[in-house]
């Protein structure tokens, strides 16, 4: 098992595997987000209290929950990179960071535009909003640290430590609405009990959450492939690849 997994830590093999997975994941992501968003925005019933405005949930919740998932993935990749010193894991972590930052930004912006008509304010410093903002800064910190060292092994170590330390923020975001009184409402989708949302609203939401996850995976693979090429520019297989591209 370990031997088999380790073989994919080889840059060339992981590059090729990522290339093979890419079209499938891309199609799946487009299909899921297409279905989920159309269903959510056009066909799901309106809400009894918020009317049509609640439909922003179909973008806001997937972005917010996947921003946390992306962070955990990045932290796990950094952890593997740090402990087992697998460079491929470091590159994966580095390629997730900007995507996670953008998704977090989307979650904050959609949340803010939802807050204005419903709560009456764009922003309030409650626990949920503040901790999500901290998540954005953590992503930006990881990106900045990785970019600021010429030596990428050192850069990955520095960025990796920040990513691992920052993972403590994820449960804080998740449970902030339960631990403290906040303006943000508690979670609608519950894993252990019945969700406080009817099926015809929940289905498109879940499809979109899954779709956002696949989308993040897809873009990560694209970025991972370029990261592998950038870090292995001197390797013969990359040179062979480049000459093949030029000859085309």
């Amino acid at each position: 098992m370990w031997k088999w997994l380790n073989s994919y830590a080889d840059p060339e093999r992981s590059y090729n595997l990522a290339g093979k997975l890419l079209p499938w994941l891309a199609c799946l992501a487009i299909a899921l987000i297409g279905v989920g968003t159309t269903w959510g925005l056009l066909f799901a019933p309106t809400d009894y209290q918020q009317g049509e405005s609640y439909r922003i949930i179909f973008i806001h919740v997937p972005a917010a929950s996947m921003s946390m998932m992306a962070y955990v993935s990045m932290a796990i990749a950094s952890f593997i990179g740090l402990v087992w010193q697998i460079k491929a894991a470091d590159w994966a972590a580095a390629s997730i960071a900007p995507i996670g930052a953008v998704i977090t930004f989307i979650a904050l912006v959609t949340g803010s535009t939802w807050g204005k008509p419903m709560w009456g304010t764009w922003w309030v410093w409650d626990a949920r909003l503040t901790s999500e903002l901290v998540l954005l800064f953590l992503y930006l910190g990881v990106i900045a640290l990785y970019a600021s060292f010429e030596d990428k092994v050192l850069a990955a170590r520095a960025a990796g430590i920040l990513a691992i330390v920052g993972v403590i923020n994820v449960p804080i975001i998740k449970y902030s609405v339960d631990w403290w009184s906040s303006l943000h409402q508690p979670a609608t989708i519950k894993i252990t009990e019945k969700s406080s949302m009817p099926m015809e609203m929940l289905m498109p939401l879940l499809i979109n959450i899954f779709g956002f996850g696949v989308m993040i995976a897809t873009i990560t693979l694209v970025r991972y492939r370029t990261e592998v090429l950038a870090r292995n520019g001197m390797r013969p297989w990359v040179r062979a690849l480049a000459t093949k591209e030029v000859a085309k």
């Binding site: 019933p45 309106t46 809400d47 009894y48 209290q49 918020q50 609640y54 949930i57 419903m118 709560w119 009456g120 304010t121 309030v124 303006l183 409402q185 508690p186 979670a187 609608t188 406080s196 949302m197 009817p198 015809e200 609203m201």
Partner: peptide, 15 residues
């Protein structure tokens, strides 16, 4: 400043 808090329940108006 008065802000409205909404809860985590969503449902169609008929329901």
């Amino acid at each position: 400043e008065v802000l409205a808090k909404h809860d985590e329940n969503y449902m169609p108006p008929e329901v």
